[in-house]
Design a protein around this nucleic acid. Sequence first.
DNA 1: TATAGGGGTTCCTGTTACTGGAAGGTCAAT
DNA 2: ATTGACCTTCCAGTAACAGGAACCCCTATA
Lengths: 129, 129
Amino acid sequence: MNIKEAGARAGLPPKTIRYYEEVGLIRPLRDTNGYRVFRETDVHKLGFLGRARALGFTLEDCRVLLSLYEDKSRASADVKDIAQRHLDQISAKISALQDMQATLSHLVACCAGDDRPDCPILTGLAAPE
Amino acid sequence: MNIKEAGARAGLPPKTIRYYEEVGLIRPLRDTNGYRVFRETDVHKLGFLGRARALGFTLEDCRVLLSLYEDKSRASADVKDIAQRHLDQISAKISALQDMQATLSHLVACCAGDDRPDCPILTGLAAPE
DNA sequence: TATAGGGGTTCCTGTTACTGGAAGGTCAAT
DNA sequence: ATTGACCTTCCAGTAACAGGAACCCCTATA
């Protein structure tokens, strides 16, 4: 099948698929006219990549996960390790965002939001505390 | 003062300060030798930018916030608007991350993490559900 | 058979907010 | 005079694509 159908079935835009090939994550065949030809296994890999990306893994993580997926003598510990590290990063990001949220929502709550210039948000940004 | 001291006082690396000048967020003076010269108001602005960035505002938001800060006839509603929109984005990001966290931590909890190949994480990535 | 459309291809640019590094000028102290 | 710590500009790289230009290919229809 061609790139558009492969994309539709894997839930990825053609641009992304071409990019994945460029960075060596997939290797679709080529037709005599130069068109990429996708097999079922290619679509399967694309789906794998799409789901891994949706979970926030970097493409480099995806590369390793994909190679582990195809390595039948893998140790699940290696997979778990990558996933756990990623979970840690997710937690860190959530915390950082929650800190921002707490600070900012406090400032916003204190702001009248009318046509006068006085604004605790700007005051808060102008000086700590 | 020179860029290093300005950076130390505002909590920003010199590289970042040069970048802020390049994109027009600040306009420090120049000494005859070509060195940037920072006044108190410049350091003040840099501090403002640093705190806005720490709250996750984009540089474009920072640009607008800074101009509002200097506009004594501003309406606080304009500031609040920007902040509220940013809060909404923060909430959306937190939700997305929490979804990832929920899915991934479930998979991780199901993975033995030993030297055997069987791995629910990979299985989960290979097929939805 | 000419053409229109809807594919496909490569290549280049732009995105965000910097960071690292090279090549070279400046300044204060020894 | 030299050393070392500053400073300068400019270029490349980062992540993961998206948009668009210029061009090729294939099929169906008038």
